[in-house]
Design a protein around this nucleic acid. Sequence first.
DNA 1: ACATAACGAACATAATCTCTGTTCGTAAAT
DNA 2: ATTTACGAACAGAGATTATGTTCGTTATGT
Lengths: 253, 253
Amino acid sequence: MANTDRLRRITQAVQEAGTLGVAELAGLTGASEMTVRRDLDLLMSQGVLERYRGGARSLLLRGEEPPFALRAEEAAEAKRRIAGHVAGLLADGESVVLDSGTTCVEVARALRGRRLTVMPLSLPAVNVLVDEPGSTTVLVPGGRPRRGEGALTGPLTRASLAALRFDTAVVGCCGLTAEQGLTAYDLDDADIKRTAIASARRVIAVADGGKLTRAALAFAVPATALTALVTDDTAPEEELQALAAAGVTVSTV
Amino acid sequence: MANTDRLRRITQAVQEAGTLGVAELAGLTGASEMTVRRDLDLLMSQGVLERYRGGARSLLLRGEEPPFALRAEEAAEAKRRIAGHVAGLLADGESVVLDSGTTCVEVARALRGRRLTVMPLSLPAVNVLVDEPGSTTVLVPGGRPRRGEGALTGPLTRASLAALRFDTAVVGCCGLTAEQGLTAYDLDDADIKRTAIASARRVIAVADGGKLTRAALAFAVPATALTALVTDDTAPEEELQALAAAGVTVSTV
DNA sequence: ACATAACGAACATAATCTCTGTTCGTAAAT
DNA sequence: ATTTACGAACAGAGATTATGTTCGTTATGT
């Protein structure tokens, strides 16, 4: 994998400036122009930006989330701890629907080899669970994978979810507050989260602390739809209390 | 990736002997015992064999196909040529359902970036097509991935296929003759092939020459269900004529 | 219970692949 | 027509993976 840090910087710089030249980016990152061009190609293939002769134009709206590969390493340690705790909450033999997003991919890693039936809602999570020794049963949902993200959405995904009943849904989010509920950047994602939650008896939300002060565009479900929340110790205390008051069992790890 | 050649030899030796010791395998391959153990672990995780203290027992019935990773490199050149020819048969804008199997993964490679709507029926093919720049629309079918193979089967896959109508189905096989029809080693696979073929207007079969003299356990469809066959020049002439007589347009590349 | 053989974790080294920068011919813009 | 950017091709550095060795642990047979 290319230098993620440089990709992140490029993404951010282009997003802020709206449009930026190759030479400027090379200066900014300390890399050669050739390397910058290769990075731009890669980011273009993830739908982050558009290239034109001499530079690139951002395709991310202000405040929109950076691409999957760049988010994966943010708060990685916290995500791993959260994932480990979630794994402990699941009992052998359960059937689980596992949402898309980087935190949920970590959960998938933590579940490898466990005797569970898992339906991951994103391709990266599928790839983590498939071909592992051990007795995990993987069910792939249908759907259209979203560019870069690999999150499966659309009618095929809805249909796959509707055909099944899960013991537990593990859902990620872009924002979660007691007042605004669980929100996502993407409308289709929110739709799938809602459907997944509707076919599960128990709902465990996972979110690093940073997400508990945000609300994103697309509303998925109210906080009261959640059974439990697993977050880290950077979560603001008052928000945790508000969520607890809404009936959510909160764990900070 | 580990040394595929050694893995193939181990697989074959264990399959022939039924059961074989680690020391023998080390002698046979020229590798150290530790390496053989690691190989056995890997093959075990692919469901090829069982380990016991001192050696391994084959889980492949006589004549059963070797695992995906080992088949991928057999007749690789022929598969690539076949795949290239199939790519030429597809027109831009078409919707295509792409069967599982190593040949079809090559077809997926040949289709990267093309303006098509593709539903690949195996995870390796999905991974080839996803995240590629270009305008290929990928639809993931639901289903249970078969260990090692990644072929998607079961009711979820059937349902995904039943919900759609394709212009073309590209199907692989384990055996194909005018008399026996198109056959597969796996019952579920055969079922999915049948369903895929039923939802497509045009059916292109792909098979290297070696398959045109074989019939496998599970019958999928008669030869008359095929529109075209793309094979290589190792195919026996008389079989090609029999297939042509059954109404199949045959191309050898 | 004891001896023996096999196992696998841990480390070191070799082989391989990936990333980055450079050069240079080609293609696009002014 | 000229300039500038582009990307293919190659080379070296860096990282990753594969393999072998050693050694303590575990399973099996007597």
